[in-house]
Design a protein around this nucleic acid. Structure first.
Lengths: 326, 326
DNA sequence: AACTATTACTAGAGCGCTCTAGTCACGAGC
DNA sequence: GCTCGTGACTAGAGCGCTCTAGTAATAGTT
């Protein structure tokens, strides 16, 4: 920085002004400083920059390194944060690295706010964190004090799935749930409500969130062969596992059985899977997340719960029920 | 820090010593300082820490947010880096965020070394980076000047796949390659070499790295129905796409067709997929990567190429060829 | 001509640590 | 009794920025 200042014939402060795009420098010198900087290959030291200023404008994000949906969200968050003039610090959650570890490392970097993607942390832990920092939980409905929540309206999402199937003519619809994972309860509720509203009896089987969980559910399904013509499944990962197993049996999809997933991850859209699914609006989720974080940081806004409406993406795994099953 | 020092009745420097676990403090005061720190909830500011010290001990890692194999590697890297006393900074690569962006942001944080997972950067770009920092490329064979490479012996991996199939009695084996992606050339070469060594004629079809690429290859395969009894595929993602499509046809796996993938990602091991695959040793890759980074940083070691031996994981997608095909 | 505003710029403190160069006390060695 | 070494501790500069307060010069007002 010193060198750039010298080369451009200005003070260090002026260089700082130019590189921050702050007012207080004429166009001429601005150009001169940037030219000097380029010549010397100068790039401001991000750490020092953060140290010096009162606000770090750093958003800490924890994500599951194995969840494709988190990948989509992270990408959207980069975009949203950048346009708002904030920076992202990533911290991965993995089997050998739990969430509290991930969060601690973010705090050590003095992130101003914590964005937790589908966290499994206990309510108490969330409350403790929220004491000292704005905490934005994404994709999980929590009622922890002082915590912002940005999530998809999962109840509505499940309802959409059921309504789609109803409109195709199905009436015997099974739901394979996500056990205790974030969002599972709401998706179960939405399914039940939509079924009752249609005068039908809900039927729920326990599932999970991974492909293996979906495959297990499929095995049970093939064993029990319940009299259903359609299935809504907790998420796309479980749905692909389910599909994969079902397709190895004599049951045809969507001929004998329609299947609806949830999340609209990249994998659902692949032509050979062609999974009908409920799309979460990652862009909206990401934008609301950064908006909330910034509101909490810059105004005395109190935590809110933002709910984003999902929509259905119809692909190849749903069709009217076969005649024999009607 | 000031407060902790005051409470413990020592100087700030002493607090620093204690928190760095550096020599120069008696056990008694060490305990006193830590107690004071705990009471005040003190955690050293990571940014300031990095600024003050000459070495940042920060390893920058770029990874693809959608590649499950990268997820596995990142997890292993956290472990390896931590035991070596280094810290990790993650920067995601995504469709809307290219590698040079990801790398720049790491440099702004003054990472000491760059770890690039399966980078697609041009040789020239790598060389430029390597001019100013140790660069460790993981999982791609590059011959760029000054760049360390840590990778799996992909030629050997492909050979393992072919030998496994040969030992089961196959002789008509097709390879669906990974086009221009990292590792594709070596895997193709290994396949060809193993086939020739067995006196057989290599047969290669163009594939890719995603599930969709694998599914496309499967469609072509079903159209052309080449006279083969086994297929080795570039990676697990493509292999699952391939399998998924094949399983919807009348072709039985492994009855009519054996399939071998590559990477041993979590998904390959799922019971319903049961993909026979070539396992890369992520732990070894991660350890060698940090070792190399540290060697480059602390000694005047010149770049090397470290090659890790893969092994075959036999699951349910391979079996002896059906009689009709022999 | 004397005043205030505004623009362009600079000096220097401060962010929260680390680290070098010390000081001080105490015991060992001759 | 003197030096020397060692372990425990401290003072204060420095890391590379930002930011407040201030100066100098020019323009606008009455």
């Amino acid at each position: 920085m010193e060198d750039v200042a010298r080369l451009a014939g200005v003070s260090r402060a002026l260089v700082s002004i130019v590189y921050r795009d702050a007012p207080g420098a004429s166009e001429a010198t601005r150009a001169r400083v940037l030219a000097a900087g380029n010549e010397l290959g100068y790039r401001p030291d991000h750490r020092a920059r953060l140290l010096g200023r009162t606000r770090t404008r750093l958003l800490g994000v924890t994500f599951d390194v194995q969840a494709p949906f988190h990948g989509d969200l992270v990408e959207a968050l980069y975009l949203a944060a950048e346009t708002a003039g904030y920076d992202l610090a990533l911290s991965a959650v993995a089997p050998s690295r739990d969430e509290s570890r991930a969060v601690q490392s973010l705090l050590d970097y003095r992130c101003e706010a914590l964005v937790l993607l589908g966290p499994q942390l206990a309510h108490s832990a969330l409350t403790v964190l929220a004491d000292s920092h704005p905490v934005i939980v994404v994709g999980r409905k929590v009622r922890a004090a002082g915590v912002d929540v940005v999530r998809t309206d999962d109840t509505a999402g499940s309802r959409l799935a059921v309504e789609h199937l109803l409109s195709l003519g199905h009436s015997r619809i099974l739901h394979i749930d996500g056990a205790k994972f974030p969002g599972a309860a709401e998706r179960r509720t939405g399914y039940r409500a939509a079924m009752r509203k249609a005068g039908l009896t809900p039927l729920v089987e326990t599932g999970g969130r991974t492909e293996a969980d979906g495959a297990d559910a499929a095995k049970n399904f093939l064993n029990d062969s319940p009299p259903v013509t359609a299935v809504t499944i907790f998420n796309d990962r479980a749905a692909t596992g389910f599909l994969d197993t079902i397709r190895q049996s004599s049951v045809e999809v969507p001929g004998d059985l329609s299947v609806v997933g949830y999340d609209n991850t990249t994998i659902a859209g692949l032509s050979h899977i062609g999974l009908t699914t409920i799309a979460q609006n990652t862009t909206a989720l990401a934008e609301l997340t950064t908006q909330r974080a910034i509101a909490r940081l810059t105004t005395n806004s109190t935590p809110t719960e933002e709910v984003v409406t999902p929509h259905l993406v119809s692909r190849a795994t749903t069709a009217p029920p076969a005649r024999s099953h009607r």
